[in-house]
């Protein structure tokens, strides 16, 4: 790990001022991604700004019913927060499916959003990677790409976004509050991460020096069932090969509203509007789920080692929808 300067900040303004617009400066909170990548020589910041002392550690319900999460709330606190468990069970499930107890104790909500890909070529400073080093090429394209994305890929990059938490947020819907040298602004969660396109190095919409301060979840869907299904090689402590987060509300056996997001298969947290359309006003039945799964994966592009992710993701979708529907039916039953 190379050397870097280190500064603490006590409030957002101080943090932003200390950071400036210098792209060699990085904010650090949990550090679980940043220090990992600094040790690998993949990230080489000259200075870190520690934001752990910023007053961004609270979870609160706003007057309009939305839930506002401070940037430095840890994954553990968020997963176990009573409001999250009661009103956003999908988020709790997704968080607990990610990483390990220790990492969840460290990782923060904003940090999880800023998580980097696990592409081994990105993580190897001597490999060709357009995301790490624009124009250097993509060793994954014709290399070992078992873990790589099939949705949202470009001819520049096929790296998977690894987060579980973000899948739940993509389904639930959320707004990010950003604060930077040019002031404060908001952006929809699903607009925050970018597809690689021909600029894979631009992973998100943050401007230089901007900091995510809050994540505000949309109000939950009335009476929706929730299910997060993560499929992976081993049973825990591993990134997804394919995951599906489903929210479904049912009226008289017909799907009233459905949200579906996918992880492990896409270059960003993947909200599938195609699947949602296929579900809308259809009977809550396996045949419907299968149609939704087809729709979700119709544009998938496989590479040499990851073609299995397409049928695997379909299976994850069908099962997650089935379980979410069960959950909705259970929730609607009189207690």
């Amino acid at each position: 790990m190379r050397t870097f300067a280190y500064r603490t900040a006590d409030d957002v303004t101080q943090a932003v001022t200390t950071h400036g617009a210098d792209d060699q400066v990085a904010y650090v909170a949990g550090g679980t991604t940043l220090l990992d990548l600094v040790k690998l020589d993949v990230m080489r910041p000259t200075q870190l700004v520690d934001i752990n002392r910023l007053p961004l550690g609270e979870v609160e319900t706003l007057d309009d019913g939305r839930l506002r999460i401070g940037a430095t709330v840890t994954n553990t606190e968020l997963a176990h927060h009573p409001e999250v468990k009661a009103r956003y069970p999908l988020l709790s499930q997704a968080l607990l499916a990610g990483a390990s107890t220790q990492l969840r104790n460290m990782a923060t909500t904003a940090g999880n959003i800023m998580q980097r890909t696990r592409c081994p070529y990105y993580r190897d400073a001597s490999a060709a990677c357009n995301r790490r080093e624009p124009g250097s090429g993509c060793d994954a394209m014709h290399g070992i790409n078992r873990m790589h994305a099939v949705l949202g890929v470009s001819d520049q990059c096929i790296a998977t976004h690894p987060s579980d938490m973000c899948i739940a947020m993509a389904a639930i819907g959320a707004t990010l509050t950003l604060e930077g040298p040019d002031g404060k602004r908001e952006i929809a969660f699903n607009d925050f991460h970018r597809l690689p396109g021909d600029q894979p190095e631009k992973e998100h919409e943050l401007r230089p020096g901007e900091l995510i301060t809050y994540i505000t979840l949309d109000t939950p869907i009335e009476g929706a069932g929730a299910y997060y299904l993560k499929l992976r090689d081993r049973a825990s402590y591993e990134f997804a090969l394919a995951s599906a987060g489903a929210l479904v509300s049912i009226q008289d056996g017909v799907i009233h509203e459905a949200r579906l997001a996918l992880g492990g298969v896409a270059t960003k947290p993947w909200r599938s509007h195609e699947a949602e359309q296929a579900l809308h006003n259809q009977p809550a039945a396996v045949s419907t789920f299968e149609m939704a799964a087809e729709a979700a994966m119709q544009d998938a592009v496989p590479h040499e080692h990851n073609a299995f992710k397409i049928p695997l993701a379909r299976q994850a979708i069908v099962r997650a929808l089935r379980e979410a529907c069960k959950d909705a039916e259970n929730a609607n039953e009189p207690r």
């Binding site: 650090v28 949990g30 679980t32 990992d36 040790k39 690998l40 220790q102 990492l103 460290m106």
Partner: peptide, 29 residues
């Protein structure tokens, strides 16, 4: 592992189990 991938370095910071390989010492002031 030095990368938060094995758990051998687990300690408690403020009562919480964390991977001490991914926490800067200066952050523990």
């Amino acid at each position: 592992c030095d990368h938060g991938q094995c758990g051998a370095c687990t300690v408690h910071v403020e009562g919480k189990a964390i991977n001490s390989c991914l926490r800067l010492a200066v952050m523990c002031e």
